[in-house]
Design a protein around this nucleic acid. Structure first.
Lengths: 125, 125
DNA sequence: ATGGCACCTGGAGTGGGCTCCAGGTCAACC
DNA sequence: GGTTGACCTGGAGCCCACTCCAGGTGCCAT
């Protein structure tokens, strides 16, 4: 009976490369519980699973859209708590989604002001 | 000979109202030189000019589009230095404009991910 | 004249999110 | 067997942008 295909595993350096988070940030995320305790090799060094890397992708996305860490923690807890929290997760993400929407709108509006200012300055030159 | 129409002047509370900055923030901005020293009445209380309020509008816009204070300070210095800095101001604002553009693009892309996640969760329910 | 309120100052404190450091372990290559 | 180099830990430090505080002044209404 063939054993299972080896689960792909990432060294810290690889995860830094893939996710764009610094090694210190990865350790920090683990420390605060945003990342579940990461597997270790015999020497105690981290070996991230595919799942870890996927979750970090989600984190990256939520971070980049401005979700505070406290809220990502809440989301992480919901994910860990199992399937019965899916409605809550939807609610959380929907609210975030609305905020992102508003943020985009705001940014577009403000950007127009900046562009107008540039045009004005150009007309003065 | 009629005197000039009274220049409109704003109390701190009015400026807080108009700009959405807190009083502490206004004082802080003055302290660090983002705002030029504000006029005072006999009792030493601030009386903001129309110009101050206008400038605060610009600050608001740059802040809300994510410009760091250090860069706003640079912009403020250019404005104060006079008309020969207009090309520099354009350069500064153009770079900021590009960053805002990128930020909007990024946000839109990330938002799609969030929306997809929501849809996925909904399909699971 | 007394209370309340809006404001003043200098300086300390806060919160978020990392980032850096000293001192140490292991594995691998020369 | 010695030196890199990637990684480890706990804890301190940093940066940004405010925000709060104590103690005080001046004006206005009751």
């Amino acid at each position: 009976m063939p054993c299972l295909a080896p689960v792909s595993v990432y060294t810290p350096a690889e995860v830094v490369e893939e996710t764009g988070f610094s090694l210190d940030t990865l350790r920090y995320y683990e420390k605060i519980g945003l990342l579940e305790p990461v597997e270790r090799n015999a020497a105690g060094q981290r070996r991230f699973s595919q799942e870890d890397v996927g979750w970090l992708g989600t984190i990256r996305c939520l971070r980049d859209t401005g979700m505070p860490i406290a809220e990502m923690l809440r989301f992480a807890e919901l994910v860990r708590a199992g399937d019965h929290t899916i409605a809550d997760r939807i609610a959380l993400l929907e609210e975030h989604d609305r905020r992102v929407e508003a943020q985009i709108g705001n940014l577009i509006e403000r950007k127009r002001y900046v562009s107008d200012k540039i045009s004005y300055y150009r007309s003065v030159l």
